[in-house]
C-alpha cells in the first residue's frame, strides 16, 4: 500500500516538477545572468569552428543539375524607399557602391565598373537560419579585389555592409563580417543569380555572399561598405540588424 502511495506521490511530484521546470526555462531565458551563459556559446562556436577550419576552406560548390528550381527570397523582397524605387526604375544605372572608413583610397564604383571587373561564379547552397536551403549560381566580384583596390588600413578589423532596404522603424539593414571571411575566396559581391541579372527579390543590384555563414549575414541591396576597427559604434553594438534586435548570433557559421 505504502509503495502505491509513494509511487503516486512520485508521479505527481514529477509532473509538478516538469511544469515548474518549463515555466522556469522561460524565466531563465529572460534572466540577464543566465542569458550571459547561453549567449557565450556564440563565441565558443566561432572559436571552435575557426580552430578546426582552414581559413580558406571552401564551402561545397555544386553542379548545374543541383540548382534549386526556384530560389526563394526572404526578409525584404522589394524595398519601398523612394531612392531605391528610382534606382530600380532605371535598372540601377546610377547605383554606386562606396567603400569607405579605414581605407587608404575610398572608392565609389558604378555597377558598370563592378560588372567589368574579373568575376567569380560559384554554385553554392544558401542556408537560412529558419532551416531551409536553396542552391543557386552566384556571379560577382570577389570582395578581396575591392579591398585591395581600396587599401585596407592596419587598424581595420570588420567590414560593415550598409543596405538600401529599410526594416521596421525606418532602420536600414546592416550586417558585418570579420577579415577572415572578407578575404575568403568565395566571399563575393554578387550581381547575377543563375546567369541572370540579380532579381530584386534576392538583393539587386548587389548582395554579399559569405558562403560559410547563414542567410542573414548575406546583406542584400548593398550601397556601402565601411571598414571599422570595432563594432561598438555600429547600430546597438552587436554588428547587425538582427543581432541587435532579435539576439541572433553574430557568428552565423552554425
Amino acid at each position: 500500500m505504502s509503495g502505491i502511495v509513494s509511487r503516486r506521490r512520485l508521479l505527481t511530484g514529477a509532473a509538478l516538477g516538469a511544469g515548474g521546470l518549463l515555466g522556469g526555462c522561460d524565466r531563465l531565458g529572460e534572466s540577464p545572468a543566465f542569458r550571459k551563459i547561453l549567449f557565450s556559446a556564440d563565441a565558443m562556436n566561432r572559436h571552435a569552428q575557426r580552430l578546426i577550419t582552414d581559413r580558406h576552406a571552401l564551402a561545397r560548390e555544386f553542379e548545374t543539375a543541383d540548382l534549386s528550381p526556384f530560389f526563394r527570397g526572404n526578409g525584404t523582397q522589394n524595398p519601398q524607399g523612394a531612392d531605391y524605387r528610382a534606382h530600380a526604375a532605371e535598372n540601377f544605372a546610377r547605383w554606386r557602391l562606396e567603400i569607405r572608413g579605414l581605407v587608404a583610397r575610398p572608392l565609389s564604383l558604378t555597377m558598370a565598373q563592378i560588372r567589368s571587373m574579373p568575376a567569380r561564379a560559384q554554385i553554392t547552397r544558401h542556408d537560412c537560419v529558419e532551416g531551409w536551403s536553396a542552391i543557386g549560381k552566384w556571379t560577382g566580384v570577389p570582395l578581396h579585389r575591392l579591398l585591395d583596390l581600396a587599401g585596407l588600413r592596419e587598424s581595420a578589423r570588420y567590414l560593415v555592409f550598409r543596405c538600401a532596404d529599410e526594416m521596421g522603424g525606418g532602420i536600414a539593414y546592416y550586417e558585418s563580417i570579420d577579415l577572415i571571411d572578407a578575404f575568403h575566396p568565395q566571399t563575393i559581391l554578387a550581381w547575377a543569380l543563375n546567369d541572370r541579372i540579380l532579381p530584386i527579390r534576392n538583393g539587386a543590384p548587389l548582395r554579399l555572399r559569405v558562403e560559410r555563414q547563414l542567410g542573414y549575414k548575406h546583406a542584400k541591396y548593398v550601397q556601402a561598405i565601411d571598414a571599422v576597427a570595432s563594432l561598438d559604434g555600429i547600430g546597438l553594438g552587436k554588428g547587425g540588424f538582427w543581432e541587435d534586435r532579435a539576439q541572433y548570433e553574430w557568428y552565423a557559421g552554425i
Partner: peptide
C-alpha cells in the same frame, strides 16, 4: 523552449546545451 515563438533564443539554448 521558449514557450512563445522565438527562433533566436531557441538557437541560443540549443547551441549552448549542445
Amino acid at each position: 523552449i521558449p514557450s512563445t515563438y522565438n527562433l533566436a533564443l531557441a538557437r541560443r539554448w540549443h547551441l549552448s546545451f549542445a
